[in-house]
């Protein structure tokens, strides 16, 4: 069983969150470290998918007051507010002994198991709906493997693949946000308020078993922090990146 690092971060600004995830991706390529990072957002933040045009955010009125960042991963826009966000970074040298496509399934299945223990019956979307793939919001799209509660999407993930490493990050909606009032969360759909996050330990443990890794709590290295600060300044916090399309 491999040892992997678990980082839990307090809510932070969007550009910093994206910069840390990319710094971890670069670190995984160089050091081979597997890292699960669980984090949050210091204010409601709209993240655009890598290929989405910046101007499209104007069509979504409720999120116009939100800070906006552009992700390095694809897919639709996400309003990050009352949610659990994670990133998983690892080298692609087979250390996890999993195909990259399996990462979605593993993460989402462990969400399903953890939620089931809480009496919440989530399930995976069985088929991609091509007609919904152009929706602005990620949670209006339907891709095979997405996490659904009834017919509502409550969880999704996306990857950024590099030659030597991969980043997968994703979100699980706990509660409806005023910046995306059309999207219900687990609280509205099930009547269960999971915002105390006590259940997260169970999910982390379940994911460790699924990946066959043993988590060890850790923090960013000095080099990762330096790299994240640079990426926040020059990329994710910069209009040249956010408005690049």
């Amino acid at each position: 069983m491999n040892t992997a690092r678990l980082i839990t971060h307090t809510p932070s600004p969007g550009a910093w969150n994206m910069a840390v995830d990319e710094a971890l991706l670069q670190s995984a390529a160089v050091t081979g470290t597997i890292t699960l990072r669980v984090y949050g957002w210091s204010e409601p933040t709209l993240s655009l998918g890598y290929f989405q045009p910046y101007r499209d955010r104007e069509y979504h009125a409720p999120s116009r007051p939100c800070v906006v960042v552009r992700r390095a991963t694809g897919g639709g826009a996400i309003v990050h507010d009352h949610e659990v966000t994670y990133s998983l970074t690892a080298p692609t040298d087979g250390r996890l002994k999993r195909r990259l496509d399996d990462w979605y399934r593993l993460v989402h299945e462990t969400w399903i198991r953890t939620l089931a223990e809480l009496g919440i019956a989530a399930h995976r979307c069985l088929q991609t709906d091509p007609q919904k793939e152009q929706q602005f919001l990620c949670f209006h799209r339907r891709s095979a493997g997405d996490l659904l509660l009834g017919s509502a999407k409550i969880g999704g993930s996306a990857q950024r693949r590099h030659a030597q490493a991969v980043l997968q990050h994703g979100s699980l909606i706990l509660k409806r946000s005023v910046a995306a009032p059309e999207l219900a969360g687990i609280a509205e759909l099930s009547g269960r308020d999971l915002s105390d996050r006590a259940w997260l330990d169970g999910w982390v443990s379940s994911l460790g078993q699924a990946l066959n890794v043993c988590w060890q709590s850790g923090e960013l290295t000095d080099e990762e922090t330096r790299r994240a600060e640079e990426l926040e300044r020059t990329k994710f916090g910069h209009l040249r990146w956010t408005q690049r399309r």
Binding site: T73, G74, Q159, R160, H162
Partner: peptide, 13 residues
Amino acid sequence: GEVESVKAVSPLF
């Protein structure tokens, strides 16, 4: 170059 599938952005080398 880059290519995006439904779930992943991948580089082209």
